[in-house]
Nucleic acid binder design. Structure first.
Lengths: 108, 108
DNA sequence: TCATTATATCGATACGCATCAATATGTCAA
DNA sequence: TTGACATATTGATGCGTATCGATATAATGA
């Protein structure tokens, strides 16, 4: 209601299969069939495509087309921003005690 | 799958009404009927109790009984811990650039 | 004890959405 | 063009769960 963005983020990560997909997409680029393979027969290709679409809608994954393949990777920056919003909304007493290194370590 | 805790947290915050309840419970203690009142007729008492139970199950709220009233408040520390886990899992390249103030400011 | 207030629980209903099989779209090679 | 491969879309189905009205439980005051 107050912050639709945060709610959409929460819904996007509130699914078992999407969690697993996000884990596999962390720090690497994978094609759809790669992901299907990683999931090891537990879900099949249309379901994976469905979840990737959901993740893409909230910008939690980045996409790169290459020939007939589409490669996906986790958008870590987006995760960081969304978690930041969660903290500001629901942990204001704690968030003030955490700062980025860049603010305290002089770049020399 | 990998981290059941994180998934439960995500599911708990993936609801419109619960978001609103959590917002109202941030930094203050409210009774159930207080919350019902704040929600302004949009949901009624049994539904609010249902959501509070869900939030309590994942320790996102703290409870204090007082007479025939039960007062709830948001557990900000839990939110912080859960967001931290999210960041470690899904934003490892970013989390290393943030530190608690306590680690860098010498307590004098 | 009884009435009143506060909250929790129960049973039923409806809706959202994850999943699948089948099919469509798109891309490349021959 | 045709055939093979990769991915997306569609339509149907089933499950989880948010919601409600009704009722139960619990605590207080008369």
């Amino acid at each position: 209601m107050i912050d639709a963005q945060t709610l959409l983020f929460a819904k996007a990560i509130a699914d078992d299969t999407r969690h697993e997909i996000m884990t596999h997409l962390c720090c690497v680029w994978l094609s759809v069939s790669d992901i299907v393979e990683k999931l090891d027969g537990r879900v099949n290709q249309p379901t994976v495509s469905h979840h990737l679409k959901k993740l893409e809608e909230v910008a939690l994954v980045q996409v790169r087309q290459e020939g007939r393949n589409r490669f996906y990777t986790l958008n870590q920056e987006r995760v960081t921003v969304c978690c930041g919003r969660l903290l500001v909304q629901f942990a204001p007493d704690y968030v003030s005690n955490v700062v980025p290194i860049s603010q305290i370590a002089p770049a020399k």
